[in-house]
């Protein structure tokens, strides 16, 4: 999976988040994760779904370092995408 495919898959997952306040189509690699309208529950829902979709595991230390969508893509691209 290349970066474009990863971001497309992430957007598809984000589209299933009912509480998300941001326009999924407007999300880029520079979009900040904390400005996407997640609350403390929906961010966990999303991360669970990302791990399941990409068959990966995101460690807590990595999770707290992620600031923008690019960080998540880097993690998925570098570590786990099959």
């Amino acid at each position: 999976m290349n970066r474009e495919q990863i971001i497309a898959a992430l957007k598809a997952l984000l589209g299933t988040q009912p509480k998300l306040k941001v326009d999924v189509n407007a999300i880029t690699e520079d979009t900040r994760l904390d400005q996407m309208g997640f609350d403390s529950i929906s961010i966990l829902d999303f991360m669970y779904d990302v791990e399941s979709k990409f068959n990966t595991r995101i460690e807590v230390a990595d999770l707290v370092r992620m600031e923008v969508v690019r960080d998540l893509i880097d993690h998925l691209h570098g570590k786990a995408v099959r």
């Binding site: 994760l33 403390s40 529950i41 707290v64």
Partner: peptide, 27 residues
């Protein structure tokens, strides 16, 4: 408002305590 506040606590190697026996609503 910080959605990552709970995860940050755990990342610091601390205990995060949550009461789980109150009505939580449809969420």
């Amino acid at each position: 408002a910080n959605p990552m506040r709970f995860v940050q606590t755990l990342a610091r190697g601390e205990v995060l305590g949550i009461m789980i026996d109150q009505y939580a609503g449809p969420d």
